[in-house]
Amino acid sequence: MVRKLCFLTSTLGMKYLMGASGLIWVGFVMAHMLGNLLLFVSAEAYNVYGHNLTSGNIIYLVEGALIFSLSAHVIQGILLTLKNRKAKGTQYHVQAAGNKKTPWASRTMIFHGTIILFFVIYHLITFKFGTYYSVIINGTEMRDLYRLVVEVFSNPVYVVGYAICLLLLTAHLSHGVASMFQSFGFNNRAHDKKIRMVGLVYAFIVGGGFLIQPIYVYFLN
């Protein structure tokens, strides 16, 4: 006899959803980082890219998917954390050190996750819903996002805050990506090391790629 068990509310299923919703954002942050590298090409290229991205209708679909998946990720993240704390009950008096210590990032996902959430909201307020400067490129009126970016990143407080959040995002990804493979069941002994490496390299590319942008703007202006 097979017992009744709902896949999505099982501890394994919850982690699947966590990984699946994370995966959408894993794809998004990479794309976002790569696109923004146009900042290094020219103000024009940057603005035209932004304009084209937001011109079609497809952007609403993408935004919808992003909001949906992040909400699912956050809700599951909170539910899992509560469930896990309850399962543990009492914490130890002494934390493991040395041989049996676990990586910091793997223990603190809910911490960097929460910071990332507030960062994403603040980031949207600053840029997406920030000051609208207008510019005309090749006869088309469009938003001068480049000017806003330069303005924002000339403030050292913003640059430092931004850098801290990006380091925490790097930490989240450095554990999250490999963990996602594991949660999907897509790992075995032969590939374990490689998958961890992929996760790390991915995290440092995304984190580093984002990080050089505010620093570049700050020091060049």
Binding site: R3, T11, M14, L80, S179, Q182, S183
Partner: peptide, 16 residues
Amino acid sequence: VAQMDKEGFGACSNTG
């Protein structure tokens, strides 16, 4: 897995 969940064990965070 059903029994494991019923016993109240937590989920895996892959900390190792």
